[in-house]
Simulated scan of single mutants.
Amino acid sequence: MMDELNKSIKVLQNGGLILYPTDTLWGIGCDATNEAAIEKVYALKQRKDTKALSCLVANDAMLERHVEKVPDLAYDIIEMATKPTTIIYDNPKGIAPNLVTSDNTMAIRVVSDKFSRYLIGKFKKPIVFTSANMAGKKTPANYKEIDQAILSGVDYVVNLEPENQNAVPSSIIKLGMDGLIEVIRE
């Protein structure tokens, strides 16, 4: 695993794109603080940059560095969730402006799989996560279903199997500072 971590980090540091297994699906990733790298993700997916991408963090401490105020309820949701859960937070900070939506929110997930946690922890920055499919196409359930255009469009493909072979997309919950809770996807 260390070899895969080091190769991935080198690509991320150079503004490149990786294809990597996560606690949910295979994803396209890049440095969440690098605006040019994020533009490459949108171009690869042929996706409008008005459709938000999410990012992954390694732990609560990293989450707190990138959200102005994490609502207390978020910690309960993260702890009690029975599957990976992405939370949309108000007022993100320290990430590339083109990851922040027009209403000043950002979708962030604290990852639970070992590879992603180690990668993000060692990289010391959040990493973009978006499913490994072209815009408007079906989300691949496994590596074999990933479109060749995605495979050839990234700078590095992590050579590891995902921890969860029957992965599904994360739940998505929006937590507003005003106390509003909205389930976007169960």
Score class of each variant (00 low, 15 high):
Pro97Glu: 15
Ile9Cys: 07
Val154Asp: 02
Asp31Cys: 05
Leu56Gly: 11
Asp31Phe: 03
Gly94Tyr: 07
Ile18Asn: 09
Thr22Ala: 14
Asn133Val: 11
Gln13Ile: 14
Ala74Met: 05
Leu12Glu: 10
Asp23Ile: 09
Leu119Thr: 05
Gly29Leu: 14
Ser116Tyr: 10
Pro97His: 06
Glu39Lys: 12
Ile173Gln: 02
Lys144Met: 15
Ile38Tyr: 09
Ile181Glu: 13
Gly16Thr: 05
Glu163Pro: 06
Val128Cys: 06
Gly121Lys: 01
Pro140Asn: 12
Glu145Val: 01
Pro162Glu: 10
Asn59Phe: 02
Ile146Cys: 04
Val67Ser: 03
Thr22Phe: 15
Gln13Met: 13
Asp147Asn: 11
Ala32Cys: 03
Val158Leu: 02
Leu44His: 02
Thr50Ile: 03
Ile120His: 06
Val157Gly: 02
Gly27Gln: 10
Tyr42Ser: 07
Lys174Cys: 03
Asp3Lys: 12
Gly16Lys: 05
Cys55Phe: 07
Ile18Arg: 06
Asp72Gln: 11
Ser170Gln: 03
Lys48Gly: 12
Val111Ile: 13
Ala61Ser: 10
Leu73Ala: 13
Pro21Arg: 02
Met177Thr: 05
Asp178Asn: 07
Arg65Asn: 14
Ala61Arg: 07
Leu44Lys: 05
Ser8Met: 10
Leu56Pro: 08
Leu56Tyr: 08
Tyr143Val: 00
Tyr143Ser: 02
Pro97Val: 04
Lys7Asp: 14
Tyr118His: 09
Lys40Gln: 09
Asp103Gln: 07
Met62Glu: 05
Ala74Trp: 01
Ile181Leu: 09
Met106Phe: 02
Lys7Gln: 15
Leu17Ile: 01
Lys137Asn: 14
Asn91Tyr: 02
Leu25Gly: 04
Asn59Pro: 00
Pro92Phe: 00
Ala36His: 14
Leu73Trp: 11
Asp3Gln: 12
Val168Ala: 12
Arg117Cys: 15
Asp76Ser: 09
Glu163Ser: 13
Asn166Ser: 14
Thr22Cys: 15
Glu4Val: 09
Asp103Leu: 04
Ile172Leu: 00
Gly136Ala: 11
Asn34Phe: 05
Met134Asn: 09
Pro126Phe: 00
Asp49His: 12
Ser8Cys: 10
Asn14Gly: 09
Met134Gln: 11
Thr139Cys: 14
Thr139Arg: 03
Ile77Trp: 12
Glu68Asn: 07
Val11Leu: 13
Thr82His: 09
Glu79Asn: 10
Tyr156Ile: 06
Tyr156Asp: 03
Arg117Leu: 15
Leu17Gly: 01
Asn142Trp: 00
Asn166Gly: 12
Gly29Asp: 13
Leu151Cys: 05
Lys83Ala: 02
Gly15Ala: 15
Asp178Lys: 06
Pro169Gly: 01
Ala36Thr: 15
Glu186Trp: 04
Gly121Tyr: 01
Val111Arg: 13
Ala141Thr: 08
Cys30Glu: 07
His66Ala: 00
Ile77Glu: 15
Asn91Leu: 06
His66Cys: 03
Leu119Gln: 11
Ala135Val: 11
Pro21Trp: 02
Asp23Cys: 07
Cys55Asp: 02
Ser152Val: 10
Gly94His: 11
Ile9Gln: 08
Arg47Gly: 04
Asn98Asp: 04
Glu35His: 01
Thr86Asn: 03
Thr130Leu: 08
Tyr75Gly: 13
Phe115Asn: 05
Lys83His: 04
Asp178Ser: 03
Asp72Arg: 13
